[in-house]
Every structure is written in structure tokens, then in C-alpha cells.
């Protein structure tokens, strides 16, 4: 029912937005094929394409990538352990101040990450002053910060799924003789699984991409990948960074494909992965 003029305007407008949205990533992947020796000549499209910089990615970048993957995975796991019972408890129970309790769980999303970063750093200094335990620059310290920013994503998506949950399923399970735990494991959890997957994916990706929180919690030799990139950009960078960045983009694509296979993109969008913010 759209007129041709409208279709053409939409096509151009949309196309422009897409070019804007995707061009930086395409350029990074293209420029990583840079064939020359000197980093000053980084160009897109590359002059003489080669994969030479992929074999020159320094070990620190792989270590940083490894650290980022571990932190993101463990933080997402812990966040799920917090968010699943929290969402179940909140949606199922009835009490006043429900809104306030829900706000506490969602609060980390409203606080700018840089504010959380400096807040955690100062909290760790206070703990150090009182007990001599230094958390900044350690795995537990980093994890605590990432759990903090990751939890609201899982909480938001699971609450969204639970609000559409059909209670008769559980009642049926009880009336057929299943106990409380059996119902939880066989009925409730499987039904909210899509919410857990998509919330977990967003939580993982946010933690994996985070700079403003991690930048305060790193130490020399203990740097997450985005922070490593951040520092590399402030100084001089060579094309090996573009190569490892391209690997990360491919990794993100792979994650998306896995999600598409496991829960479907529709679920990811409907469960409000984006609107959880």
C-alpha cells in the first residue's frame, strides 16, 4: 500500500542508516587484510590483501581476550544465579514496595558505567584500608563489577517472560503429583529458558565489551580485551590490532548464529533484550 516515492525515500534513508551503522566494522575487517609493512599506511580498501597481520597478533592480546571471555562467562553465570531466583521471587510474591525492590535490581542499568567504575574502585580501596585485602586488579574484583552490570539484563528478560507465564502449567504439574522441586525443574525453568538464554547473551556481550567499568579494575598484566584496545588506540597501533578486532567481530557473528539456532532471533527481540535497558 506504499507509494513508489515512499518506497524509494525509505530505501535511501534506510540504506544510509545501514551504511552508517555497519561501515566501521566492515572497514576494520577490510583494513585488517592490509598487506604493507608500515602501520601508517592502513587503508581501506587494502592495497595488497594478505592475512599476514593475523599471524602477528601479539600474545598479550590473546591473553586479554582469554581474560575477557572468562570474566564475561563467569560473571554471566553468577548473574544468572542471582537473577533467576530474584525474578521468580518478585513476580510470584505479593507485597507492597514491589516497584522499589525491582528498581534496586535494575539500578545498575541506570547508573552510568563510569560512575559504577569509580564507585567500585573506591569501595575496593576502602576494603583495602580496613582489611588489607586488595580487590582492584584481581579476578574476584573484576568479576564483582561485571556481575553488577550484567545482572539487570538477565533480571529484565526473565521478569518479562515470567509475566506472560501460564500458571495453569504449574498447577497441572502439581495436580499430576509432581513436587515443588520437580515442578521447578521440569516445568518452570524450561519455560523461562528462552528468557535466560537471551538475557544471558546480552549480559555476556555487555560484560565482554565493557570499558568504563573494567578500566578502573585492571592492573598491569591484567587487562581485559576492550581496555587493551582502548590503551592501544590512545598510543600507536599496528594492524595486528585490526586483525584481532576482526576475530572478535566474527566471534560476535558466531554468537548470533548460535542464538538464532537455539532460541531464535524473534525470542531474543520479544523477550526485550534491548528494552531491558
Amino acid at each position: 500500500m506504499q507509494t513508489w516515492t515512499e518506497k524509494i525515500i525509505m530505501f535511501i534513508w534506510c540504506g544510509f542508516s545501514y551504511v552508517f551503522l555497519l561501515s566501521p566494522m566492515i572497514v576494520v575487517m577490510g583494513a585488517s587484510l592490509h598487506g604493507g609493512e608500515f602501520s601508517a599506511a592502513i587503508k581501506f580498501p587494502p592495497d595488497e590483501p594478505s592475512f599476514q597481520w593475523y599471524s602477528k597478533i601479539p600474545a598479550e592480546q590473546f591473553e586479554a581476550l582469554g581474560l575477557s571471555l572468562i570474566v564475561a562467562a563467569v560473571a554471566t553465570f553468577i548473574a544468572a544465579l542471582i537473577a533467576i531466583p530474584a525474578a521468580l521471587g518478585l513476580v510470584r510474591s505479593n507485597f507492597k514496595l514491589k516497584f522499589a525492590v525491582s528498581s534496586v535490581f535494575r539500578a545498575p542499568l541506570q547508573i552510568p558505567a563510569i560512575v559504577s567504575g569509580i564507585a567500585f574502585l573506591q569501595l575496593y580501596y576502602l576494603i583495602f584500608d580496613t582489611s588489607g585485602l586488595m580487590l582492584a586488579g584481581t579476578i574476584p574484583g573484576m568479576l564483582l563489577g561485571h556481575v553488577f552490570i550484567a545482572t539487570p539484563f538477565l533480571f529484565g528478560t526473565i521478569v518479562a517472560v515470567l509475566q506472560r507465564f501460564d500458571h495453569r502449567l504449574e498447577e497441572a504439574s502439581y495436580s499430576l503429583g509432581a513436587g515443588r522441586w520437580r515442578t521447578l525443574y521440569r516445568v518452570t525453568l524450561p519455560t523461562i529458558m528462552p528468557g535466560i538464554y537471551s538475557g544471558g547473551l546480552y549480559a555476556f556481550m555487555v560484560s565482554f565489551a565493557d570499558v568504563p567499568m573494567s578500566i578502573f579494575l585492571t592492573a598491569p598484566g591484567f587487562v581485559t580485551y576492550p581496555v587493551e584496545l582502548f590503551y592501544a588506540m590512545e598510543n600507536d597501533f599496528d594492524p595486528s590490532i585490526l586483525a584481532s578486532s576482526s576475530l572478535v567481530i566474527v566471534f560476535c557473528l558466531a554468537m548470533l548464529l548460535i542464538v538464532q539456532k537455539v532460541v531464535g532471533l524473534e525470542t531474543l527481540l520479544r523477550s526485550g533484550g534491548g528494552s531491558a535497558r
Binding site: S23, M25, F44, M205, A209, L229, I241, S245, V248, I249
Partner: peptide, 24 residues
């Protein structure tokens, strides 16, 4: 397919996108 492009771009860390911008 178009949505997938958007979701991927929300996943990729902003540092990489800034890299691309600087090259452009």
C-alpha cells in the same frame, strides 16, 4: 537478516567501531 546486522552491531565493542571510524 537486517535485524541480525543490528544485533551484531550492538554486540561488538564500541572501541572496534571507533577504530573503523578513525580509518574512514
Amino acid at each position: 537478516f537486517l535485524l541480525a546486522g543490528i544485533v551484531v552491531s550492538t554486540f561488538v565493542t564500541i572501541v572496534i567501531k571507533v577504530f573503523g571510524l578513525i580509518i574512514i
